[in-house]
Structure formats: structure tokens, C-alpha cells
């Protein structure tokens, strides 16, 4: 298992290299001049040229990229063009807020999604199931920014029971978390439902019933636990989507997180800031994916034995063949 985790961590290196290449290339082809963003419209061509030279933007792209990589390996993500402060420091200061938003959001998705999915699967074909399925369809079709605007309109503007902007405590979390969570809840609901329906037909569910297990235990212990693998997969993917979606939601609710930082950085052509922000998100997403794979093993012993469990496995092999 540890070897597996180590292997996966090493595999993150090429992935992250790929991310830097892509983002770097995209920044090169986006129109706009960082020097002009920094100096403003009334700067003279000479001033602009001097600034470009200072930032190293006149060097060949490959040289710029290698320089960036070399700095990165030393833990230096460069300084922001706009604030002049180290990017790493700025990004890490904002990252916890975004992570918090993502975690609260994904929790909303998971709790709502699994509860509704199980309810709908258990009542398959009944009115409850139909209502939940329709609500799920609506939930998955609404874009996050629209949900956000709708929620702040209703709860902040009309009912005035929840704040519409800021990030100062749990009360401020509710609307943004719902906004990022609703799409995910719908996706997880649909996955849970179909996975549960598949599992409920299995023989071991009947075995559990034949043991005299109460319905609750049959559904939540025997059926749900066996249905979790696809649900975990979808939940892991949603974390990635929600990290990216944080940009939109942070703008709507003016949350001082990584998303709004990135949006500002992009519009100012603040190359180091964009690179740094994207890199941190990519690392996080890779780690979440690794976590998902570890969770598989945790849920399903068959996958655990595939990852290789060391001594225990050898012992079992001998036993089975005997």
C-alpha cells in the first residue's frame, strides 16, 4: 500500500509538468501585454520596453519556461507583477479559504446526494423517486453562477436572513456552499441511485434479509457500502470541478479566495500569479485523486488486495490454494 502511494506521488510529477507547459503556453498566446497592465496606458514605448526587459519577457519562450521551472524547483514561484509580493505566499494565504469553500460544498453534495440517491433507489418507481429524479435533473442543469445569483437574490436580498458577501464565519458559508454544492449533489444523487439499484438486486442483499437483518441495516450497511465505489469516483471528480468553479462563486459572493485572485491575475496578465494559482489547484486535484484511490481500497477489500498488502497477502495465497 505504501509503495503504491509512493508510486502515485511520483506519477504526479509528469502530470504537474504537463500542467505548467499547458498553462505557460496558453499565457503566451493570450493577447495583452503585462508591461502595459503594470505601467498603465500613458507609459512611453521606452518605459514599456524597459519593463519587458526587466520581467524577462523578451527572452525566447523556452528560456522563460526553463527559468520558471528552475525557480519553481527551488520553491520560488516568482513575484506578482501587480503587488510585487511572492506569489507562493499570496496564493497560500488565499488557498485555505478556497479549500474551505470546496470542502463545505462537497460535503453538501455528498450528504444531499447520497441521502436523496438512496431514498430514490429504495422507493424506485414510486412518487418520491420521480420527484427526486426530476429535482436532480433540474439541479444538474442549472449553472452554478445562476444558482448563486438566485440564492443571493432570495436569501440575502428578499428574505435578508443570510449575508450575500464575505467570508467571516459559518453563516457566510451557507449560500456559496449551496451554490457550489447543488450541481455536485445532483450528480452524486444520480450515481448513488443507479449504483444502489444495481446492488439491491444482488444475491447478498437477499442473504442479509434472510438473516433477519432489519431494513435499515440492509440498506445502509449492505447495499450502500457496496454502492460507494462509483459514488466516490464522482465525488472526487466533483472536488476538481468545484475547485475550478470556485472562481465563479468567489466572484459572485466576493470571497477573498484563490478563485477571485486568479480572475484578477488573468485580467491583469499577471503571469506568475496565474501560474502559481493554477499549479496549486492542480496539485490539490492530484492529491484528491490519490485520496479517492486510497478510499477505494478502504471500501473494497478486493481492490485492497490488488494494491498489494505485503505479508498478509502471501499468507492468504497459500491458504486458498491449499
Amino acid at each position: 500500500m505504501y509503495r503504491y502511494i509512493l508510486k502515485r506521488l511520483l506519477m504526479m510529477i509528469p502530470v504537474l509538468l504537463g500542467v505548467t507547459v499547458i498553462v505557460f503556453a496558453m499565457l503566451q498566446v493570450t493577447p495583452g501585454d503585462p508591461a502595459r497592465s503594470i505601467l498603465g496606458d500613458d507609459a512611453t514605448p521606452a518605459e514599456l520596453e524597459a519593463k519587458r526587459e526587466e520581467l524577462g519577457l523578451n527572452d525566447p519562450v523556452v528560456v522563460q519556461y526553463v527559468r520558471y521551472l528552475a525557480d519553481m524547483l527551488r520553491g520560488d514561484l516568482g513575484e506578482s507583477y501587480t503587488s510585487g509580493r511572492p506569489v507562493l505566499q499570496e496564493v497560500m494565504r488565499r488557498f485555505p479559504t478556497t479549500m474551505q469553500l470546496t470542502l463545505v460544498g462537497i460535503s453538501v453534495s455528498i450528504v444531499l446526494g447520497i441521502l436523496l440517491g438512496v431514498t430514490s433507489a429504495v422507493n424506485k418507481g414510486k412518487i418520491v423517486d420521480k420527484v427526486v429524479t426530476v429535482v436532480g435533473m433540474i439541479g444538474i442543469s442549472m449553472p452554478a453562477f445562476w444558482i448563486g445569483l438566485l440564492l443571493s437574490q432570495v436569501f440575502a436580498l428578499h428574505l435578508q436572513i443570510l449575508p450575500a458577501t464575505g467570508w467571516y464565519g459559518p453563516r457566510y458559508w451557507v449560500l456559496p456552499a449551496l451554490t457550489v454544492g447543488v450541481n455536485g449533489a445532483a450528480a452524486i444523487m444520480r450515481t448513488t441511485r443507479s449504483s444502489m439499484l444495481e446492488v439491491i438486486r444482488q444475491d447478498y442483499i437477499r442473504t442479509a434479509e434472510a438473516k433477519g437483518a432489519p431494513r435499515k441495516s440492509v440498506i445502509y450497511h449492505h447495499a450502500l457500502k457496496n454502492s460507494l465505489i462509483p459514488v466516490i469516483t464522482v465525488a472526487g471528480l466533483r472536488v476538481g470541478i468545484q475547485l475550478g468553479g470556485a472562481m465563479v462563486v468567489e466572484m459572485i459572493f466576493t470571497i477573498p479566495g484563490l478563485g477571485s485572485y486568479l480572475v484578477d491575475a488573468i485580467s491583469f496578465r499577471d503571469y506568475p500569479a496565474v501560474m502559481g494559482g493554477v499549479l496549486v489547484i492542480a496539485v490539490t486535484f492530484s492529491l484528491v485523486n490519490l485520496l479517492v484511490d486510497i478510499l477505494y481500497a478502504f471500501v473494497d477489500p478486493r481492490i485492497r488486495s490488488q494494491y498489494g498488502g505485503g505479508k498478509k497477502r502471501k499468507f492468504q495465497k497459500k491458504e486458498v490454494s491449499a
Binding site: 447478498y204 442479509a208 434472510a210 433477519g212 437483518a213 432489519p214
Partner: peptide, 24 residues
């Protein structure tokens, strides 16, 4: 009441042992 009878007074063995056990 049936839950108390199933498994205690009346038990059942199913046809296919490959799928009758909870894999996890």
C-alpha cells in the same frame, strides 16, 4: 416479527455461493 424469525427459526441457503456473500 418476520425479521426475528428469519435467520433464527427458519434459515435459507441460496443457490449460488459465489454471489450470496457480501464482498466487502
Amino acid at each position: 416479527e418476520m425479521q426475528k424469525i428469519r435467520g433464527a427459526k427458519v434459515s435459507m441457503i441460496f443457490q449460488d455461493p459465489m454471489t450470496a456473500l457480501n464482498p466487502i
